[in-house]
Amino acid sequence: MFTIDVWLLRAIIAIFLIAIVSSLIGSYSVFRGSTFLVSGIAHGALAGAALGIFLALYLFSVNYLLVALIFSILFALAIGYASHKKENVDVSVGVMFALSMSLAILFLSLIREYASVAWGLIIGDLLLLSQTDIEIMTLSVIAIVLIFIIYHRRILFSIFDPEGAMAVGLKPALYESLLYVIVAIGVVVLLKGVGAILVYALLIIPAAASKRISSTVSITMLFAFLISLFSGLGGLALAVISPVSPSAYAGLIATSIYFLTIFKK
């Protein structure tokens, strides 16, 4: 009778969840032209995770992914607020990027287990996910999917035609901020599995590759899901037979697919 180890099953579930996030958030970020935002928020989540680990070790029990979620949402809202005040989005992201990395280094420096903890947050590991990690990731993805089901058309309208959205009574700034919050939630879903560095690879690259070979938003989302899923499962399969993090393999596979789409053109 075929059996599967719990750690492997958790990794597979995480890959499916990551593929869903890549399909939705990655596609919207690519169409919005705000892919750098993902990197900024990812490092905000890293700072929050580092703070959560510090609190759990020395003060009181708290799940560091929840702290990372709070931090990433606050950073996303701060970036959105600055952009609504006519500040350049890239400048806002750059400032928050610097702040988040400073905080991450500060908190990680205060942790005695600095090296191992920092390495785990930076590169992640799909093979070391706990049941609690999977539960938080699942709830986060459910929240993202529900928000997109409810506000999908309004977010699209606000992204592609903000003037038209205002003309029919919508508030593009509000839905843009909502999109930033969704990106923040999605980043945390990826943080533990692939680490802060490779969040960009598995959140943006599948959608960017998909956009080059598709003509509609829905097809782009479908291909982004399939590319992310293939990259994740391929990375996991290679990691099982070699002493390398599956996220590294997944990032390389996704990047290779993107370059293939360039050559195709």
Rank of each mutant, 00 (worst) to 15 (best):
L24W: 07
S247N: 13
A56H: 09
I144E: 05
S140Y: 05
I204T: 09
L190H: 08
I53Q: 03
I18P: 11
L128Q: 15
A11S: 11
A254D: 08
V38I: 15
L139Q: 05
I197M: 09
V95P: 14
G124S: 03
L17T: 10
S247P: 14
S22I: 06
L139H: 06
A82T: 05
A209D: 08
S231K: 06
Y114H: 13
F71Q: 13
R32G: 03
S22Q: 03
N63A: 12
F31T: 06
S92Q: 04
S130A: 10
Q131A: 13
K171L: 04
L260P: 03
Y258E: 03
G52I: 03
Y249V: 12
L74D: 13
M1P: 15
G44Q: 08
S23C: 02
L236S: 07
L202P: 05
G48H: 14
M166A: 10
I18S: 13
S29R: 01
R112A: 04
T35E: 14
V199L: 08
H43G: 10
D90P: 10
R10T: 09
L51R: 02
F160S: 07
K171Q: 08
I20K: 08
S83Q: 13
L170W: 00
M1K: 14
F97W: 15
L59A: 11
A207V: 05
F60E: 00
S214D: 01
A76L: 09
I197K: 02
S29V: 03
Y249R: 10
A254Y: 09
I20M: 12
G251F: 13
V194D: 12
H84M: 12
G251H: 14
I253M: 14
S242H: 10
F148H: 09
V244E: 05
G234R: 10
G195P: 04
I20T: 14
G52E: 06
S22N: 03
L51D: 04
E87W: 05
L110Q: 04
A184S: 12
W119P: 00
L226H: 01
A14G: 15
A42Q: 11
V91E: 03
M96L: 15
G48I: 12
E135T: 14
K265Q: 08
S92V: 02
I111N: 10
T216V: 01
I227F: 12
S29T: 04
G26W: 06
